[in-house]
Write a protein that binds this DNA or RNA. Structure first.
Lengths: 216, 216
DNA sequence: AACATGTGTCTCACTGCTTGACACGCACCG
DNA sequence: CGGTGCGTGTCAAGCAGTGAGACACATGTT
């Protein structure tokens, strides 16, 4: 077995399904760049993806579910960027916080989907997926963020990170939907506010649990 | 960036077919990393790709045709690298020649498929595709290389470039199969040998047909 | 009220993948 | 020498997913 066990090729069937879903989601994003969400029909999306409307329904069930997946995928892309920013500052938690937040806000400000929603052009349904109906998004993003942070600082208690993550996700969504000044400013504010907390977490973890002996 | 008119998304059906072919070819490369070509069965390839043997035959006809496509795809990847090297030295044809040749030999030396063939481990059938049965490869690569050069120096007569391209392709295959010293040395040799010819082409083109004062 | 549009569901035809089988060639082996 | 195993190449039947068309339903428009 020459290839490493981690990067295993997905069987064709799985890859094809993923390709279908991504093609449809990409097609929707493309449509959204020019029109409002309420103006984009399921037929438009299917057509832009080169697929029948029925296939779209088979894959995503309903328009609402499709929107949900669309938003979740976009959020996931942000988290990839955030993960990179965090891993680039593993030595300085506060700076990692600021950098990650800045990267996120920057990406959000440039993202077509986010711009569409924030601009308020008939995308109320999508907006709800970020706010009032945002449970899956917030929980999913917080969970994912928890893993990212936990991977960077394994000594901190998971519960503390979960608390921090949900707070960060909510703040991030808030700032993304209602920007305030330059992104770096907002990021600095968050870092200032939460910096002491994370420093305390780090300190508590390193003193309480030196690398050799782990205490749960 | 939303979507320029040039990079249009391929319809799902096309993308899925391409995905199937690439999955199969990748699976074959993976198998080849550990075993000889003669030891890799069609069933192995199909299985590694997560697809049935019949599908493999439907897509590629026979084992020989599959090997042909495999080699051609690998060659195409080399040409992408070569194209990059050429475009990085549009101001100096001789240097472009050397750089492209060096890039090619470097990539060939590191390529698992090429190494397998050169090492001679039971891949005689594949070796033949580069040499005695290499017509499709040589012609295809020369054609492709012609386009690359023509794109860089549009003033040169196509016939001259075709001549040069075929010569280069044959030399490249020769050096790839039977390396001589460091790759940069071989590249320099070729550049020295063919440099005067290309300089002459450039000179002839710019003096004979100056469509504007725009000489590269 | 009549109409137009979009969603969601259903049915049918078709394409493509899977499975199992078979003939053929070939190397190995008693 | 014939038997056996293995791999190639082909075929037919079965199955899953997609495409195409029609339909009921809700909503908004005229």
């Amino acid at each position: 077995m020459t290839a490493t066990a981690t990067d295993r090729r997905p069987p064709y069937a799985v890859a094809a399904r993923e390709l279908l879903r991504n093609t449809l989601l990409d097609a929707a994003c493309e449509q959204l760049a020019g029109r409002r969400w309420s103006e984009v029909t399921m037929a438009d999306i299917a057509g832009a993806a080169g697929v029948s409307r029925q296939t779209l329904y088979n894959e995503f069930g309903s328009r609402d579910e499709f929107a949900q997946v669309l938003v979740m995928r976009e959020a996931d892309r942000f988290l990839v960027a955030v993960q990179g920013a965090v891993n680039a500052h593993l030595d300085d938690p506060a700076q990692a916080l600021a950098a990650a937040f800045d990267v996120f806000l920057q990406a959000a400000a440039e993202n077509p989907l986010v711009r569409t929603i924030v601009h308020g052009d008939g995308a109320e349904e999508l907006l709800a997926l970020f706010t009032t109906h945002g449970t899956p998004l917030v929980e999913g993003a917080a969970e994912r963020l928890t893993e990212v942070i936990l991977a960077g600082w394994p000594l901190i208690a998971r519960a503390d990170i979960e608390l921090l993550s949900e707070c960060l996700v909510r703040l991030a969504i808030s700032y993304a939907g209602l920007p305030k000044g330059p992104t770096s400013m907002s990021a600095a504010s968050v870092a200032t506010l939460l910096g002491p907390y994370v420093e305390q977490l780090i300190a508590g973890a390193t003193t309480a649990a030196p690398p050799a002996a782990r205490t749960p």
